[in-house]
Every structure is written in C-alpha cells, then in structure tokens.
Amino acid sequence: MNESIRTVPHHDALIYAMVTMSAVDSTMTDREMKKIGNIVQNLPIFASFDQEELISTAKACAELLQADDGLDAVLNVIAASLPPTLYETAYAMAVEVAAADLHVEQEELRFLQRLRDRLGLEKLIVAAIERGARARHATR
C-alpha cells in the first residue's frame, strides 16, 4: 500500500463517491448527474461547499479513476479524507445515485460492496440505507 494516500476536503470525497457510482458502469446518465447536483445543492453537509466547484471536483475524480488502479485510488481517497462519522453519509449518497435511474447495474453493486467494505460499514446500517433508498425511489 502507498505510504501516503492523497486526501481531499470532505465535500470532495463525498462527491467522489457519487461520481464514481455514476461512472462505474461506463454510463453517466442525466438522471444520475441531476441527482448528484440535487444532493450537493440541498443536503446540509454541502452548505459551505462552493457549488461552482462541483464540475471541477467531478473532473478531478474522473481523472483519478482513469489511472491503472483508479478505483482503488478513489476508494483510498474517500476513506482517508472522510472522518468516520461521514462514512455512512458517503455510502448513502452513492446509493442515492445508483437508485436515480431506477436500475442498478452489476458494476454499481460491486462498487457499493467495495465502498462499504473499504469504509467498514456494518451490515445492518448498509441494509437500512439501501432499504430507505428503495422506499424513496419506489414507483408503485
């Protein structure tokens, strides 16, 4: 493992989790991008975040993902940059982006598994977050 893992501000790390979720299936849908924008615009954790920085933060994440070990690098940055109190928040935001287009691909499920493993989230917490997202996005 690297002796030093790059860190970013916590806002950026949360955005990295969402952008990576959107990108892992190689299709960043308009619904997913709109969901990311809505989350950044409306959730209290982003109150002090400069909305004008969203695009550049998303681009920085995309550049990191392009590296040979891109997904591992992004997961390391997320885990190293967030305080443990925001691990569940990062996972919940990733789940919201996955649910945005009402269909979750296998690549997205694998990313969620890697994210929850990397953050060491408890199974019951993960189940509650996922169930809440299913309830919010139900269509019938």
Score class of each variant (00 low, 15 high):
residue 87 Y to H: 11
residue 53 E to V: 01
residue 53 E to F: 04
residue 86 L to F: 10
residue 69 D to W: 06
residue 93 M to Q: 04
residue 97 V to S: 02
residue 83 P to M: 13
residue 82 L to H: 03
residue 65 L to T: 01
residue 87 Y to M: 06
residue 71 L to D: 08
residue 95 V to C: 01
residue 96 E to H: 07
residue 53 E to C: 10
residue 59 K to M: 08
residue 53 E to L: 13
residue 65 L to G: 01
residue 63 E to W: 06
residue 81 S to C: 12
residue 93 M to G: 02
residue 66 Q to H: 04
residue 69 D to L: 11
residue 88 E to V: 00
residue 71 L to E: 15
residue 90 A to Y: 05
residue 88 E to M: 00
residue 67 A to P: 06
residue 70 G to R: 12
residue 55 I to W: 05
residue 69 D to V: 07
residue 56 S to I: 15
residue 64 L to A: 12
residue 99 A to Y: 00
residue 96 E to A: 12
residue 69 D to C: 10
residue 63 E to H: 05
residue 89 T to A: 10
residue 55 I to R: 07
residue 64 L to M: 15
residue 59 K to E: 11
residue 68 D to Y: 10
residue 74 V to F: 09
residue 54 L to E: 03
residue 56 S to H: 14
residue 68 D to R: 13
residue 59 K to Q: 14
residue 82 L to R: 03
residue 91 Y to G: 00
residue 58 A to L: 01
residue 93 M to I: 02
residue 76 N to G: 14
residue 69 D to K: 07
residue 96 E to K: 06
residue 76 N to P: 10
residue 79 A to S: 13
residue 76 N to Q: 14
residue 77 V to T: 15
residue 92 A to P: 01
residue 90 A to D: 03
residue 65 L to I: 04
residue 91 Y to V: 03
residue 54 L to W: 10
residue 53 E to P: 01
residue 93 M to Y: 03
residue 67 A to W: 06
residue 68 D to W: 04
residue 79 A to R: 14
